[in-house]
Design a protein around this nucleic acid. Structure first.
Lengths: 116, 116
DNA sequence: TTCATGTGTAAGCGGAGACTGACAGGTGAA
DNA sequence: TTCACCTGTCAGTCTCCGCTTACACATGAA
């Protein structure tokens, strides 16, 4: 994980509303309107947060049809596990983001999070 | 670690300049002006960042006198090690911040970071 | 005295991000 | 047709944060 990835991840997690979203989704997937109701948050605002979180790989969204034909946008948590200490952070800072056409990733090619 | 602490910590780490500061301090303590020079950052700006980081427990500052009597404000990294995954985050969200006069911390009374 | 080096703080600007309100469109049920 | 749901997006406001510029003050060396 290079410094840009790390920052995107931290920005996605480091917000009061967004960790509440994580707390709510921890017990299972939910669709947007229901999630908005539970958190007492406007739906457009929730969209913004979920978008940001999806870009950072924290959640994944999926459009689904309910029994009665309604389209529901479900979101669930993506598995992630990031450790923050002096070593991991300074390692990320040192990552110089190599040229796209360059195979010499010095430590972790593209991703350190998730439990595959 | 409750959700407020977690957010303060994440806000302190989740910033491009601040992880650069961590990267620089990883090799040892530095005083403010020297650090500002190395990072190419104005000193007042650096002060703001260091203040924020100190409040979050990321760094500690200490005023010292150099050989020639100059007062130097040295900063060094505080040891920290935080793990971020669904469990740790939702645990923090569930922390209801008990009354100050209450001894029943359900998991970790006041701090989960550092290695005392 | 002047210069170079430090620490510390205050005022102000600008832009990004958080948030609201309103819109268009779709569905099934009454 | 109307209602009650849902998804999606846009325009606008507002606040906070990052950042710069500028001060006041102290020290040792020239």
């Amino acid at each position: 994980m290079d410094s840009e990835e790390l920052l995107a991840f931290l920005a996605a997690v480091g917000h009061a509303q967004r960790i509440r979203i994580i707390g709510e989704l921890a017990s299972g997937q939910l669709y947007v309107s229901e999630l908005a109701r539970r958190l007492g948050v406007s739906r457009p605002l929730l969209y913004m947060h979920l978008e940001r979180m999806e870009k950072a790989g924290l959640v994944v969204g999926r459009l689904e049809l309910s029994d009665d034909g309604k389209a529901l946008k479900y979101f669930e948590l993506a598995p992630f596990d990031v450790r923050l200490n002096v070593d991991t952070i300074s390692a990320a800072v040192r990552q110089v983001r190599p040229d796209p056409s360059d195979g010499t990733g010095d430590d972790e090619p593209h991703s350190a999070k998730g439990t595959p």
